[in-house]
Design a protein around this nucleic acid. Sequence first.
DNA 1: CTAATAGTGTCTATTAGACAGTATGTT
DNA 2: AACATACTGTCTAATAGACACTATTAG
Lengths: 236, 236
Amino acid sequence: MSGKDREVNEGEKAFLDHYHPEKYASISITVDAIVFGVMKDTTDNYRKLDRQSLKILLVKRERYPYKDCYSLPGGFVGEKETFEDTLGRVLMKKTGLADIYSEQLYTFGSVERDPRMRIVSCAYISLVDINQTKIEGAEWFAIEDIRRMELAFDHNMIIEEALKRLRGKINYTDIVFHMMPQEFTISELQEVYEIILGKKLLAAAFRRTISEKLEDTGKMTSNAGHRPSRIYRYKK
Amino acid sequence: MSGKDREVNEGEKAFLDHYHPEKYASISITVDAIVFGVMKDTTDNYRKLDRQSLKILLVKRERYPYKDCYSLPGGFVGEKETFEDTLGRVLMKKTGLADIYSEQLYTFGSVERDPRMRIVSCAYISLVDINQTKIEGAEWFAIEDIRRMELAFDHNMIIEEALKRLRGKINYTDIVFHMMPQEFTISELQEVYEIILGKKLLAAAFRRTISEKLEDTGKMTSNAGHRPSRIYRYKK
DNA sequence: CTAATAGTGTCTATTAGACAGTATGTT
DNA sequence: AACATACTGTCTAATAGACACTATTAG
């Protein structure tokens, strides 16, 4: 039983007519997005595979506070706006992204996290296939580089929490595929798992377990300087 | 880099001096608690074990909106109050509980979830050992009964989400033990798992896997009308 | 003795880890 | 040929499911 379509009795109606929201605590809410993507870093050695790295989209703040610092893309939730609407609006405006996979991460509400006033951040994790998207106004940063930067607010901490969540979910969900290109090799996929989990996996075991989620495209890689690889897509 | 102790330059200082929070969107935040506990329902048959059931604490609303409806215990977050502080304050006031295990569940932010104004709910799951606590002002309800009730706001839905989270975490964390009495039998523990997972488990397998988390108290049950059971406590 | 639960033993099926060994492109 | 990667086969270890079997109490 929730909201709009509910029947309201006389007593409640009278109560609502005299309710003054202005007199309650003034806390603002922002939605911040941790947008993850996987990027290929091309190598010079013709024989070696391109290594991939996990990246996050950051924007440079144009205003105070933390002017000129990098931060997660985010913005204030409007009074008639759902978190998801805010997320979509903010991502479009600050990064140029539209319609990407997102899920709520956690809500950060410590009192002093923003110097302006009490601002609570509802953080969302978003995953994109970097190849399919054109970014405007934001830049991709590798996790290792971000760890050496001082981001605005508590955003360094938020990113670490996001990584933990990714790591926790990768083995019992199919979220990784939101970051993968349409077609990929098992080795590429394995490398993404390894980056997120922070450890090497055994190729044989990985192939066995992952293969049930994959569909053979019939294509093969070429000009790799070594044995070609089957190209797969995510099944279902 | 976050909040209070940060060095602030001249430009940012000037900006903050002229910042007026009042002119931004007015959204209120509540913290709502889903307090879970396990209760023994005594049987008449001297031979049968007492069955247990999973319960949630609800309070009857004394004010509009949803006056006289049952709802989750909750309350508004003060401007200088963390979510955890609000949670503690609200739980103490509405249920008499203090210092109980809690973790953030999810933040519910749909626009129409409260008829008064835009109110966002940051929901927390709390787990208590019912035997150790005295409840004042709230009542325990079995899940099955709650499913047949119409709770205030979107609280029915929030409870379902909380159950999903419990179910998801029970197998890779030790959270259940927050709901268990200090000492318990493996059968009792197994029943709690079964209630949360909504399915029967095989006793032999359950004993094997759970035993590493348990410590024998040396005590046994008695007067049970059947073979006595070892009594354990949670190890570590 | 019987009902009801406690607790063990064991066979099987499934899955993960380890790792050797084979396959196949490019230069 | 040699390098780098792709891919397969197989042995082993660990774990979960199934289920029969034994143990122990109160009445």
